[in-house]
Design a protein around this nucleic acid. Structure first.
Lengths: 344, 344
DNA sequence: GGATGAATTGCTAGCGCTAACATATACGTC
DNA sequence: GACGTATATGTTAGCGCTAGCAATTCATCC
């Protein structure tokens, strides 16, 4: 099939075409199209008209090569399908919308090698900055990030040493906070439900902080259950059933994310289990979805939007050279939300 | 703060640096790095080693300009936060992963002007193809798409005329199918709940098909309720309460998406309403989330992953010039899922 | 041994645009 | 009316890479 066949031999349009059509030099056309430098109102109008008539779209490839500037920010995150990263993106976009910068997303699926290749790919477009999830990367990835002369912001974790800048919460601390709240509420037989993802370092750190703080209270995780793949809501139900059948004495279930927590909550309600009396429940993330559930699940807000905002601000200000008083290590405070599934 | 300060005056690396480090011409380095043309095993090894030592990352900007080839596919969709587009992306990535092409996402938030500007922005990077949601665009956007000599696939709707190629379901038909199923099940007092989005053409078409088919059965939509913003699950509850208070005789509620449908379902279950006996419920999209709910909501699967796959296939094959027997207008069939909230 | 062709490597000329500088034109000023 | 000072436009030289061809090397053959 032929495409766009209404134009004959379609040689792609260039500045020269616009320049010829409007009777000024290419440079002037370039200036008009970028709103840079002084151009008289008359020629501006002429040029704009010509560009519009022709349907000219500037070639950023050439522009970027000539100017050595690319207004893209590489955003490298594990996934888009779990409600947490879209929120981060929202925060990023919010801030970048007020700058010439634009986010471009790369997905890693929690695979270090994929992260490395995505990073390589993105860096080959010479972006103005990088926002990347986590502090753990392959050696090669770390080397690339260090070797590149642009702002690099690692987000969603502050338990470690950043290459350049970092923004997020301490997951260890989040885990500890939850453990303390649980202990204080008098729960004594704790179960943990999470993902089978050795590579999800943030979940791991949360768990570490959790067990550590429990230990201080003389408690421990008495049973655990893990899943992978499938609908998190369904898995939450199934895992909850499994763990409660195996360990009927449990009186608290800590889920590594809100979605499986919600599944667990629905299961308990189905079974007529008294929540939070008989069993307490808590998830992690503070996703909006929870508010529509029959009972508000306890959770911990990780400040996702704020993380995105701060990270974008750091990149934007560094790219603009405006670093006066700029914080490059921002630790946000996770906020415990008791909801209605955790006794106070 | 100084960044990447372990290197002194950091002049960015170019092919020339690798060429000098490995003692061959730039051209040969280029060939090695792109796996193109004949290069002896010995030099290949030498070059690769030099590139790695230096930490060289090719400059795709320059490469793209020189070769006039950009292996990016612009994917322009309204949003990432409603579970439907991530699925489309999954299908797209799945197919593009087997090609040199890479998707780049642009978000429109359902705003035509935003769509236009995002499209302009993306086209200025001269992608190898465009996948764009919907068949409705501004005149300027349509002109751009027509004027560009690359494959353009419009997805998620086939009720209209595509610029080039299209893949998706007929939303009118989806609406009709649901209306017929409802009528056949004997429901007679129908309510509709949706979004306040005059610009969501697909929801509109679904509604049109729905009312049209209802009319054929001598039925009509007796009450409606709309929302915007906020948590869809919460809104679903609230709207359901509102509409049922206002029109207690309704015996079926058709929701324009699964999330508000799920909210409505939870509300009905809370209130002890017999579903699907007293009131039937149905949503739209077939999102995975539904399976974790206490009752399986009736819905209609829009074939999102398959849509993404097909669209990507069309772009990939057209870009590769392999158009033999290629379907460029693919209508997928929406699949009604009765679940447990629609009598049969 | 020199011709032959294939495999390997190098050279030249842009790709379309913009930074930096050079030139032209307008506008006051005394 | 000569001069400076803005303002407006044009010219030149690449940005870093690759297509297309030229040149070189090497093995092979009669």
């Amino acid at each position: 099939m032929t495409r766009g066949s209404q134009d004959q031999a379609k040689r792609p349009l260039t500045l020269r075409d616009v320049s010829e059509a409007s009777g000024v030099s290419e440079m002037t056309v370039s200036r008009v199209l970028r709103n840079r430098g002084d151009v008289s109102a008359a020629t501006r109008k002429k040029v704009l008209a010509a560009a519009k008539t022709l349907g000219y779209v500037p070639n950023k490839i050439a522009g970027a090569l000539a100017s050595q500037r690319v207004n893209l920010v590489a955003v490298i995150i594990p996934s888009m399908s779990n409600m947490v990263f879209p929120d981060v993106m929202t925060g990023i976009s919010e801030v970048l919308d007020n700058t010439p910068l634009q986010p471009v997303v790369g997905l890693t699926n929690y695979l270090p090698e994929k992260e490395e290749s995505v990073l390589y790919e993105m860096l080959s477009w010479r972006p103005s900055g990088v926002i990347i999830a986590g502090l753990e990367h392959t050696d090669a990835a770390r080397a690339m990030l260090r070797g590149v002369d642009i702002p690099v912001v690692e987000i969603m974790d502050v338990d470690g040493t950043p290459i350049d800048a970092m923004v997020g919460i301490s997951h260890r601390r989040a885990g500890r906070m939850m453990a303390q709240a649980i202990a204080k509420a008098g729960y004594e037989h704790i179960g943990f439900l999470g993902t089978k993802m050795p590579l999800d370092h943030r979940a791991r750190k949360r768990f570490e902080g959790f067990t550590e703080a429990l230990a201080k209270e003389g408690l421990e995780v008495e049973d655990q259950e893990f899943y992978e793949g499938g609908s998190a809501l369904v898995k939450g139900r199934e895992m909850t059933e499994t763990i409660l059948n195996r360990s009927p004495d449990l009186d608290f279930l800590y889920y590594s994310n809100d979605m499986i927590g919600a599944g667990g909550l629905l299961y308990c309600l189905d079974k007529g289990i008294d929540v939070p009396g008989q069993i307490g429940l808590a998830g992690f993330n503070g996703v909006e979805l929870l508010q529509g559930l029959p009972k508000l699940l306890a959770t911990m807000d990780a400040g996702r939007i704020e993380t995105g905002r701060k990270a974008a601000e750091i990149v934007a200000r560094m790219a603009a050279g405006d670093v006066e008083g700029l914080q490059t290590r921002v630790e946000l405070t996770p906020k415990l939300q008791y909801g209605e599934t955790l006794r106070r």
